[in-house]
């Protein structure tokens, strides 16, 4: 974990409530896709955990949803402004487990961390398929970016206004055979993927956090491998250890 100041280079809307922020700063502690950063926002007591969309050579891209007062403030920030960010948090996805045909499933604001993952999997020669689930056409983002990496992309929307109508699991058949799943999204989606998928997989969870680095026990969860902290031992859990509680 590293604390450093990042400078905003770009902060633009991708949809009505999803923003993309590109920053420059020290990205050396970001070692795996699926990790997150913790952003200190002026006037807010707790930092905001946000997944890493991409990190290359001192350039960090965050895609975040405006959900409350903290992210509302972030959305109003402009290029040149600085943010105090803790980087290198969380375990991230293990790309070694992918097999030849990994299937990536993202829902809503769970889509962003899959981008860096897809990039690395494509780079190592995998045949990558991505399913992106959204509520409605106006919520869809990053389809083209995944396609540009060379991934095969399916989009689903709950109301059918874009892609296939329904949930992400509805297009598993069409997506074809896969060797491993990587998913990130709301818990009901993760659970549906867990129940539908026939292979091993890695699931990225979300929880309200205090510190983001394992000190406060605010984001604990039970697993078959013992109690874990989503921030430090997660956010990625492997299929075999997951206990569904809620």
């Amino acid at each position: 974990m590293k604390q450093s100041l990042f400078t905003i280079k770009e902060n633009v809307a991708l949809t009505h409530d999803i923003m993309k922020m590109v920053l420059s700063g020290d990205t050396t502690d970001i070692t795996r896709p699926g990790q997150f950063v913790n952003v200190l926002i002026e006037g807010q007591y707790l930092r905001r955990p946000i997944s890493v969309n991409d990190a290359i050579d001192g350039e960090l891209t965050l895609i975040y949803k405006i959900v409350g007062v903290g992210t509302e403030k972030m959305a109003k920030m402009t290029p040149g402004e600085k943010l105090d960010i803790l980087t290198g948090l969380g375990n991230g996805y293990d790309t070694e487990k992918s097999g030849d045909r990994p299937l990536l499933i993202g829902g809503g604001v769970g889509v962003p961390p899959l981008y860096m993952l897809a990039k690395q999997l494509c780079a190592k020669g995998c045949d990558v398929t991505v399913i992106l689930g959204f509520r409605s056409a106006r919520d869809v983002f990053y389809k083209d970016e995944f396609e540009a990496l060379g991934a095969k992309v399916f989009v689903t929307t709950e109301d059918g206004t874009a892609g296939t109508k329904g949930f992400v699991t509805g297009v598993f058949g069409e997506a074809g055979d896969y060797t491993h799943t990587y998913s990130c999204g709301p818990e009901p989606m993760l659970r549906a993927v867990y129940n539908t998928s026939v292979t091993s997989g890695q699931y990225s969870f979300e929880e309200r956090m205090g510190c983001g680095f394992g000190a406060c026990m605010g984001c604990s969860c039970k697993t078959l491998y013992g109690n874990k902290r989503i921030c430090k031992d997660g956010p990625v859990l492997v299929k075999e250890e997951i206990v569904w509680e809620k």
Binding site: L46, G210, C216, M217, E245
Partner: peptide
């Protein structure tokens, strides 16, 4: 002890609430 169910953390003006419950 596992402690309380989550969410266990909430932000407040200049502070926070925790309800970890002695995990």
């Amino acid at each position: 002890r596992f402690g309380n169910a989550t969410p266990r953390i909430a932000e407040c003006p200049s502070g926070m609430l925790n309800a970890v419950g002695l995990q």
